[in-house]
């Protein structure tokens, strides 16, 4: 049985919940309170995925693990786009963390320079929007390959929650088209705080 150590407000946990839903995988959730100062899991920060005796940490690694171990179709991690998928997984784990940190400052009063983080986050969204605009000129709808991959799932939460720190998606038309497509995927689930009025 898959078991997710989960925190409801975490964008990274939401990425895993979304992947599990899109793959239609039954799982159990263990709530972890991550409010500053509160406990975490024996393995470190959430999300943490247990699969029988195996334990996987790190949001990007969990997504690729799920695609490898639990998606016989292989379409979420296609071999022919492996390099591009990896690039955007790395982007989610580096450039996009500014948005995660900005959100923690804005809603949970974590320490940090909100304006500086938002500037970085804005640049990250700009890079994503540019990439998607280029892809559309090539006739492609997703970050990598012909269909949605784990790369799309990895970046989606931070994009959709950017309004929490005060960044709207008005300046990013390609991101907006992409997020609407992603919401149409069978099995899609939202998260509290992700608007569904687009």
């Amino acid at each position: 049985m898959l078991r997710l150590h989960d925190y409801v407000l975490s964008a990274e946990c939401y990425a895993v919940r979304l992947m599990l839903a899109l793959l239609g995988l039954a799982h159990e959730r263990r709530a972890v309170d991550l409010y500053p100062g509160a406990a975490t899991t024996p393995w470190g920060d959430v999300p943490v995925l247990e699969d029988g005796d195996d334990v996987v940490t790190d949001p990007g690694l969990i997504l690729t693990y799920l695609a490898r171990a639990h998606d016989p179709s292989g379409r979420w991690l296609p071999a022919e786009s492996a390099a591009v998928v990896s690039r955007w997984l790395a982007f989610a784990a580096t450039d996009l963390t500014a948005l995660r940190d900005a959100r923690r400052v804005a809603i949970l009063a974590a320490p940090g320079d909100l304006d500086a983080l938002n500037r970085k986050g804005y640049m990250a969204l700009r890079a994503l929007d540019d990439h998607l605009a280029t892809r559309r000129l090539e006739g492609a709808d997703w970050l990598a390959g012909d269909g949605p991959t784990v790369a799309d799932i990895a970046v989606f939460p931070a994009v959709m929650l950017s309004h929490d720190s005060g960044i709207g998606l008005e300046d990013f038309p390609s991101l907006n088209l992409w997020q609407r497509r992603l919401r149409q995927l069978p099995g899609f689930v939202g998260m509290p705080g992700i608007p569904d009025y687009f």
Binding site: L9, D33, Y35, P192
Partner: peptide
């Protein structure tokens, strides 16, 4: 506690 907090925070974020 984590479940109670998670439930309440989910409601609050909505």
């Amino acid at each position: 506690d984590a479940e109670l907090i998670g439930f309440q925070q989910m409601i609050f974020l909505q």
